[in-house]
Design a protein around this nucleic acid. Structure first.
Lengths: 341, 341
DNA sequence: CTGAAAGCGCTAACAG
DNA sequence: CTGTTAGCGCTTTCAG
């Protein structure tokens, strides 16, 4: 026995090899591979043995080529760099989608669009036949990815609801309704000067949460009490709270448009020496891992991120089976009342 | 113009269509597609025009089949469910790898192994020719994925260094050295009863961080002051700290083996009414987004997660070019001294 | 410089 | 029930 390491990849066995080894034709091998009926027990077991013996694994490129399908679904994350790192929702959506696809024996491939260059490459990749459908997370209206997906006519499901996806499938939560509910609750617990840190107004979720806030405030709504910030991030939350405090030192309640934003706001409040929930009550949105980590734990809206992922996956799968896109799916998101308000 | 929506995917144009449209042969089209020389200017421009006109996009499945390569690299995340959601390092690694691959015009496909079923499907997927190489994140010794990758002989690079990857490429940080350094620092600032919350001892990183701690403690090492917990998580950090406090109420310093663990420990310390850094000093590891969020901000070891991703990607790319796996890459990770100790 | 033809590995009719 | 025969869309000799 020599000590030479066999590092190079040896040529992989093909159906032909299996056929030879089992003494049948390639057609028959293909049949057992695809679990088709009309194969004799003898042939089947001979082939199965042969497959094990030669270590055969089907070549998916070849199979995709002839089947015009790949049993793989892409999940596109189009998120500003830093946010992907901070946002626990994305990972949950990913995990949920993966579970649902896994059950259907589909492979999930998570694709990142982090630069214009990425977007171009992705568009080519998607149309290359290696992906049967896509789930698009955190798209904004006007995204090039959205356009590319639409043009390709690839089965798709969006998580969230950018305005420009036409009649494409989407799964979402009722951001506006939930925002309204939690804001009312803040009002009902005796807060009178309630402000909002409104993040990501360029996204449907951000805009809708603001709309819900406005709904709930009704006549009491004061534009001075709304601070808009670009992202659902801790640092934007802190910055937004500082602004708000400056403009309205008398506020006693805050609706932060995400838990991360609320966590940042909490920090700013602490710096400013305000107690929570004593001086000011604060509520978030998402019920992500941030919520429990905060001190005090956040009252917030529970967002079933993994279910969003599951539902989006189910939608793509349904489209693949030939169903039409179907009606939008809107998931429940109950308020979770903790100690921050 | 009718109002019928063209929803169905129309048959995509092929090289043949382009060739016809441009009045040349498929071979010539292929040549311009691949930027090969020996094509007349006339033919080239005719073909380019034709490509645009018919909206041709090459079919990657077909190309992969004949080229035996797909220009796509997989990144396998094999992490306990919840951790993937909580660990900001993974996203950073992902982003770093994506950047490096993007520059080389490779597509990154992030693959999740979240169940035994996933692992099986993944193994098949990897050997299907749709992926040219893999980056494996957060593997533990004995992982089936590791075995599958090895058996396939797929170019691979590990982030971290499980003991059983043989001479496969890996990029890592000097966990042991860094742990030693930061523990010493804790000692040097006057702490004498220093404990450790040691997470993930089944991982090289976890075991090495403990080893570094033991190194630094030298004669002062007391096994009673080490609490082992399963994961690098907030909740395990909190639980571990409670244990430690019970066993050794007199401790005045803690090395938490990750920032998330430190954050959890901080929480337990707060519950127990200990001030930080007054009563007890605490240090973490990772310099992730947790570190700055904590109150007080954590002294910790900076882990260049995005660089790990970049380096792993570079290694896979090099192997694809035919280089040997090369020597392991070990990245610097300086201590960042903040306020928690 | 370009066309014709072979074939990557697999599945899907279609006769037996 | 099984073998044979076409391709899927692309690249790549090999002659011209």
């Amino acid at each position: 026995m020599t000590s030479v390491e066999i590092t190079e990849r040896r040529k992989r066995a093909t159906v032909k090899d299996v056929a030879q080894e089992a003494g049948v034709s390639r057609g028959t091998v293909s049949r057992v591979l695809n679990g088709q009926p009309y194969v004799s027990e003898a042939a089947r077991s001979a082939i199965e043995a042969a497959i094990a013996r030669v270590g055969f694994v089907p070549n998916r490129a070849a199979r995709s080529l002839v089947m015009q399908s790949s049993q793989a679904i892409g999940l596109i994350v189009h998120e500003p760099h830093s946010l992907f790192v901070e946002d626990p929702n994305i990972a949950s959506i990913l995990l949920g989608a993966n579970e649902a696809l896994s059950e259907a024996d589909y492979q999930l491939s998570c694709l990142i669009a982090d630069s214009p260059r990425d977007v171009d490459r992705l568009a080519r990749y998607l149309s290359g036949g290696l992906i049967d459908g896509v789930i698009v997370v955190s798209a904004r209206a006007g995204d090039r990815i959205t356009a590319a997906v639409a043009e390709l006519g690839l089965p798709a499901a969006f998580v969230g609801h950018p305005r420009d996806i036409g009649d494409a499938a989407y799964v979402a939560i009722d951001n506006r309704g939930a925002a309204r509910t939690i804001t009312r609750r803040l009002l009902d617990t005796g807060r009178s000067r309630v402000g909002m840190i409104a993040a990501a107004l360029d996204r449907d979720s951000g805009a809708d949460r603001l709309a819900g806030f406005v709904d709930a405030m009704g006549a009491r709504f004061d534009p001075q009490l709304v601070q808009s910030v670009p992202f659902y991030s801790f640092s934007d939350g802190r910055a937004g709270m500082r602004e708000l405090l400056e403009r309205a030192p008398d506020l006693d309640g805050v609706f932060a448009s995400s838990d991360a934003v609320a966590a940042g706001a909490l920090e700013a409040l602490r710096e400013a020496g305000r107690s929570v929930p004593g001086d000011v009550g604060i509520v978030g949105f998402d019920d992500s891992s941030w919520a429990l980590r905060c001190d005090p734990p956040l009252s917030t809206v529970h967002q079933p991120a993994d279910q969003l992922g599951r539902a989006a996956a189910a939608s793509v799968l349904a489209q693949l089976r030939g169903d039409t896109a179907g009606s939008p799916i809107v998931l429940e998101c109950p308020v979770v009342w903790r100690e921050s308000a």
